[in-house]
Design a binder for these strands. Sequence first.
DNA 1: CCGCCTTCCTGTTTCGTATTAGCCACCCGG
DNA 2: CCGGGTGGCTAATACGAAACAGGAAGGCGG
Lengths: 339, 339
Amino acid sequence: MRRPSQRDIARRANVSQTAVSLVLNGKAAEHSISATTEARIRQAMAELSYVPDAAARSLRGGRSDLIGVHTFEPVFPVGPDDYFHEFLVGIEERAVELGRDLVLFASTQRPDGRRSIYGNGSNRLRLADGTVVIGLDRDDDELRRLSAEQYPFVVLGRRDSLPGVASVGVDYVSGVTRVVGMLAAAGHREIAYLRGVKHETPQRDRRTAYTDALSALGASPRWYDIARLGRDHGPARWRADGATAVLVEAAEDAAAVQARADAVGVMLPAQLSVVCLDGVSDPAATHWSQLRIPKRAVGARTLSVLADILDGRLPADHQELHPCEERVVPTTISAPLGD
Amino acid sequence: MRRPSQRDIARRANVSQTAVSLVLNGKAAEHSISATTEARIRQAMAELSYVPDAAARSLRGGRSDLIGVHTFEPVFPVGPDDYFHEFLVGIEERAVELGRDLVLFASTQRPDGRRSIYGNGSNRLRLADGTVVIGLDRDDDELRRLSAEQYPFVVLGRRDSLPGVASVGVDYVSGVTRVVGMLAAAGHREIAYLRGVKHETPQRDRRTAYTDALSALGASPRWYDIARLGRDHGPARWRADGATAVLVEAAEDAAAVQARADAVGVMLPAQLSVVCLDGVSDPAATHWSQLRIPKRAVGARTLSVLADILDGRLPADHQELHPCEERVVPTTISAPLGD
DNA sequence: CCGCCTTCCTGTTTCGTATTAGCCACCCGG
DNA sequence: CCGGGTGGCTAATACGAAACAGGAAGGCGG
């Protein structure tokens, strides 16, 4: 028992396969199919519970309606608190809106665990109409080759360094600059930076932005490391060093600082203002401010850009940058207080 | 610039399209294609970075090397603590091992937000050789229809109710039964159950298992709800009711119970033994035991079963059930203590 | 009564791939 | 020198849907 095709519908309704196709695609009127014939065809479709074959459709249309998602690491990270998770939420959301399916290129993973577009023989990406490329550990040589092959793709991530390659990125620099400016405006003179456990591209970008923002203010950076946070290193010590504000990289880092501050009797934010550069905690419930990265929107936008490139509405080397949003709760940034 | 087809390869290598197809599918020897010709063909494929068209392949009846993942809800949940996340980790892991790519069927989402295999006009699943079907809110009618059409798929989830449909599930019943048995063996007579915020299939299954396990012991269930946990309802009250052990549904529920217990001075586990039925917390660091669901392994196994069905190594209606693992830290279950 | 315009369809081709049947040149035994 | 095998390939076809070109029947003006 094979599933019904348009031919089966056609036979049952005494029409040609073409007529069935026309009715199916709402072009009945345009091609002047009579109302009665259309009704007969529709009834036949209903009776056989016909469903068009997706494979045949995309074969004919020249596009598969598949959008690739190439990640240089596994898409589903072992820990669900992954940096990329929210981008993917946005990507899926927009894929739904665009009516396209997503292909996760798992087959590109090599024995060493990294994924490589060309590493495994053929370029599987060609399977999809176009691809979103994500990943911390991304390989720019492969991207250049992909670009040379004229394959349509968009990089989600840092903006720089690849002319001719489409990308959608996040403008950390102006975000961090604005946060630093706010702190400075509130009177802070020593703004420190607490490095987290990760040292990948997103973190490097923020650190660079911090350095730049400070030097624009004529101040110099003051670095701390989360790994050393403990009895001897922490809010009290920072205050002793002169710092009255600190930028942290993750919500759990901010929580750790809060915990240490509570332990040593440093008041947040009165004695120490904390701004978290990437976190999802509820700002109303915490004693720190955040720089929110609109990951979901950026993910969605990346997919839209790819779709626009595929449809010729945008050039293949379109690049854009999205601003961060400050979720600054006023009460969590205070003027620095002497001891 | 169209993506290259076998015809393009054929022209470049001065052979017929047939030859290209044969080489591609490893039937060169079988059809006595000479080694030099095969080499020429392979080189042409590499030069043009040819990739077979999935749509054409599945139309023709060959295989696209794509494995579908159909979820009745978004794959990337807004909250990262999703029930399905770890299953997907396992699925991706095994896909890597099998060298197959995954298609996430986002296009099947209808305006109302739910996803439907047949709801949106065409059955996209056919693009893939076979599909793993996951989802809380799964539609059994669609699965029956899919099965009638002989499309290969495997349901990841509850075992029951769909004869003829392949599935890989988790044996909650025996897991919960064993946990209840352990508590009973430790001397507990009143084993309560704290219902969490969700009331989907996985929760329902565990609750049924709890009821069954208790009635097997001749005891009757005692229900509490996390929503009411607070000043008046909590560990102290439960003890007053006579309960000395409680099953909770999620790690955060266990943490909440711990917090309330601390607040009212109930000692865990001495005065109240807690077993968490689904959580990822580190058992060594907490005062409760857990019933661990081997989600990753189950996810991976589901994909293997599908691959085996596709290759004819397993029948299309293969069903299997995986046991839970107890991660019972002995010290977290204690004999009940009077007040 | 002829030509033309609608109305309402149908025939044929195309997409890229896998398969089936079969072609042609060469070698070998008789 | 001819028949039969075999190595090395190719031509033709089918899959299901969609696009394009076109065509038969009927009405209507001249």
